[in-house]
Write a protein that binds this DNA or RNA. Sequence first.
DNA 1: CCCAGTACTTGGCTATGCATAGTACTTCTG
DNA 2: CAGAAGTACTATGCATAGCCAAGTACTGGG
Lengths: 123, 123
Amino acid sequence: MNLENTQIQMRKGILEFCILHIISRGEVYASNMLDELTSAKMIVVEGTLYPLLTRLKNAGLLEYKWVESKSGPPRKYYKLTDDGTHFLKGLTETWDDVVHSTETVRSTFAAATEKNAAEENKQ
Amino acid sequence: MNLENTQIQMRKGILEFCILHIISRGEVYASNMLDELTSAKMIVVEGTLYPLLTRLKNAGLLEYKWVESKSGPPRKYYKLTDDGTHFLKGLTETWDDVVHSTETVRSTFAAATEKNAAEENKQ
DNA sequence: CCCAGTACTTGGCTATGCATAGTACTTCTG
DNA sequence: CAGAAGTACTATGCATAGCCAAGTACTGGG
């Protein structure tokens, strides 16, 4: 129960959302995504990204094509399928809901305490 | 890989943050928290909340006292320990970072594509 | 021919949220 | 007093995503 672990937990699902978003803007390969995520201060390691891309591809949300590279092995350039575009739309709503709910909890002040006091008086 | 599952994943860690926040505002017991979370549209079931409270207590972030109730079994009223207050502060920063990073990814437009094009020209 | 750099792969570990079922206490009803 | 209903807490087992760490494979330079 340390901060580092919670940071890890908080990323679950969110990474998927971010990856789909990045891919939705144009064909990219894994290193492009890592760069962009890093520049957004969302550090991701290879062992997280590659399995995620494979999952998304197997789910039919992504497709890729191999493109030769002059500086190493060929690259997988990913793009969204129609299903992927639709799924991203749903994820966006989910994310907005989660943020909104969290903000509600943060901005509510002592509602429970008041409610609790009311209940005590009632009894 | 369906929306429902991603909604579940997105809650990981965030729930912990919300619970600590609710408790930080005053002593409450589990049903109070469920009510407040539900009213914030963050639906949680008992089987999730109770183990979480136990974990937080075992980690020394919470403490509770038993209070008799006139309408059922006694209740555990929770409050934050000093460690819990400190931990919540850290979580708040983490959450703000995650939201900020995600917003950065969402608001960035085609940065990767431009970068990619530049790289191609370089070669 | 080896070495560094790039790109992708794999296997095992951990933690959290969920489903489901169960215990225990109190009050109300007949 | 017996049984039902409501409230509060407990217990077990599962699925999943992200992490770590090591490994494969291709290219070009000295």
